[in-house]
Amino acid sequence: MNLILVELRKTVDTRAARWLLAVVAALTVAAPLLQGGRAFPAAAAAAQLPVSILLPVLAVLAVTAEWSQRTALTTFALVPDRRRVMLAKLAAVTVLGLAAAGFALGVAAVVAGGVDVAVAGQLALVDVTTMWCGFGFGLLLLGSAGAVAAYYVVPIGWAAAGRLVPALEPAARWLDLSRTRGPLDAAGVTADEWARFAASAALWVALPILLGLVRATRAEIR
């Protein structure tokens, strides 16, 4: 638990992180008000959007900062088991995602005057999933600029290809996370929609994290 708290503090206790959190908080409050929808699902989807788009940058930096700022040697000297450190970072990122989701859903509840528990749970899952996705890209690349760029460019490129190339459309319906997460903005998600979301999450979240853990535990520290 102490290691998780340390990693959580390291993630948010920088000037850049504080500015990003402030911007996300401001946009989270403004989005449902500007969107104008008073039903909880619409307000929650609007409030959650800044969280899912911008906050994963912190998940990327939670990993890559160790290498880009050259603090990995100190970190791994104090805790030689790199997997333990990486899992603590993942737990810290999860806590941050859940806290941000709670804030966004609270704003939506105030705007809408009520809460749809099912939709709230689904959107919290989306927020955590996007944080894990950013974390996975950070683990794979271990460089801040490249990982942040890849996190945004690669999924967007795949989504565009899936919509523009007819031959890729069947695969994109299952493996485009930006598309499969869409139904979770509302109640009544079907079993097929859950299966598509799980398949895309396996590609964009589980696989990068697993491969990244292998790389991070073997990467040379300079």
Rank of each mutant, 00 (worst) to 15 (best):
A159D: 01
A108P: 12
V119E: 15
V126H: 07
V79Y: 06
T75E: 01
G102S: 06
L123N: 06
A91R: 06
S144H: 06
D127R: 13
S52E: 14
T71F: 04
T74E: 08
L61P: 00
L140G: 08
A147T: 02
W158P: 02
F137T: 02
A161G: 06
R70I: 01
V119S: 14
C133V: 09
V57N: 04
V95P: 03
P155A: 00
G114A: 07
L125Y: 11
V63Y: 06
A118R: 15
I156E: 10
V110C: 12
A112C: 12
A149V: 11
V117A: 15
G146P: 09
G102Y: 03
W132E: 03
S52H: 10
G114P: 10
A160F: 08
V153R: 01
W158Y: 15
A150K: 04
T75Y: 01
P80Y: 06
T130P: 00
A104R: 11
A112W: 13
R82F: 04
T64Q: 05
G121Q: 12
T75I: 03
L58A: 07
T71L: 04
P80V: 05
L58V: 08
Y151E: 00
K89N: 05
L87D: 10
G157E: 00
G136N: 00
S68C: 02
F76K: 01
S68D: 15
G136D: 00
A109Q: 14
A147L: 04
V110P: 09
V126W: 08
T64K: 04
V128P: 00
G114S: 08
L141T: 07
S68F: 11
S144V: 01
A108D: 11
A118T: 15
G114R: 08
L55K: 07
G114H: 10
G102C: 08
T64E: 03
V153S: 07
V93G: 00
A77N: 05
L78M: 11
R82W: 03
L90T: 03
G106I: 15
L58H: 09
L73H: 12
R70C: 02
R84D: 13
T74L: 13
G106P: 13
L58D: 10
G114E: 12
I156G: 01
L125C: 04
S52F: 09
